Amino acid sequence: MIDPKTFDDLARRITESLPESVRSFQKDVERQVRSTLHQGFDRMDLVTREDFDVQVAVLERTRARLRDLEARVAALEGKPAMPDHEGSDIT
């Protein structure tokens, strides 16, 4: 999920942009904005950049392993291995 500090900073910037008369209710507004942001981001089912990068690395290793296995199968079957761009249909 997104870092809570990001929510806090975004909520703070939004409340700071409000007129002075509204700032007297800053705590309530800030709490409501933070809650709304949390709910909105939760519905988006977001992941952190770190989690995304980990999954990209796993996918790259899996693709490399798949290419190796395809080449081994082709060699065992006596067929020439397919070039990388014609290998698996996984993109």
Score class of each variant (00 low, 15 high):
Gly87Val: 01
Pro19Leu: 12
Glu50Asn: 08
Arg65Met: 06
Glu20Gly: 10
Leu10Ile: 14
Met44Asp: 07
Asp42Met: 02
Pro80Ile: 09
Arg13Ile: 08
Phe25Lys: 11
Val47Leu: 10
Asp9Ala: 15
His85Asp: 12
Lys5Ile: 12
Val54Ala: 09
Val54Met: 04
Glu16Asp: 15
Pro4Cys: 12
Arg65Val: 00
Ala11Cys: 07
Asp68Val: 03
Glu77Gln: 14
Pro83Met: 08
Arg12Pro: 00
Thr62Met: 04
Asp53Asn: 12
Asp84Met: 09
Ala64Cys: 00
Arg12Met: 11
Pro4Asn: 11
Pro80Asp: 14
Ala57Pro: 00
Gln32Gly: 04
Thr36Asp: 11
Thr91Arg: 07
Asp28Lys: 05
Asp28Gly: 15
Arg13Val: 12
Gly40Lys: 06
Val54Ser: 05
Lys79Thr: 10
Glu20Tyr: 12
Pro83Leu: 09
Ser17Phe: 13
Val58Ala: 03
Arg72Ala: 10
Met1Arg: 08
Gly40Val: 04
Glu77His: 09
Leu69Ala: 05
Asp89Thr: 09
Glu77Thr: 05
Gly78Pro: 03
Gly78Asp: 06
Arg72Lys: 13
Glu86Gln: 14
Asp3Trp: 02
Lys79Arg: 15
Arg23Asp: 04
His38Asp: 09
Ala75Ser: 12
Val47Lys: 08
Met1Asn: 11
Gln32Cys: 02
Thr6Asp: 14
Thr91Tyr: 02
Gln26Ala: 12
Val73Arg: 06
Asp42Gln: 06
Val56Cys: 09
Glu86Asn: 06
Thr48Met: 07
Pro83Arg: 09
Ser24Gly: 15
Asp3Gln: 14
Glu70Val: 02
Ser24Leu: 13
Arg72Gly: 02
Met1Glu: 12
Thr6Ser: 15
Arg43Asn: 10
Met82Glu: 15
Ala71Thr: 05
Thr62Glu: 03
Leu69Phe: 02
Leu66Ala: 06
Gln26Trp: 09
Glu70Gln: 07
Glu86Cys: 05
Pro80Asn: 08
Arg13Lys: 11
Val33Glu: 00
Ser24Phe: 09
Pro83Ile: 07
Ile90Trp: 07
Glu77Cys: 06
Arg43Met: 06
Asp3Met: 13
Met1Ser: 15
Phe25Ser: 14
Leu76Met: 10
Ala57Ser: 10
Arg43Val: 03
Met82Ala: 15
Arg67Leu: 03
Glu86Gly: 00
Gln39Ser: 14
Ala74His: 04
Gln26Pro: 00
Gln55Ile: 04
Leu59Gly: 01
Phe41Arg: 00
Asp9Pro: 00
Asp42Ser: 08
Phe7Met: 13
Val56Pro: 00
Arg65Tyr: 07
Leu10Pro: 03
Leu76His: 08
Gly87Tyr: 01
Thr6Trp: 14
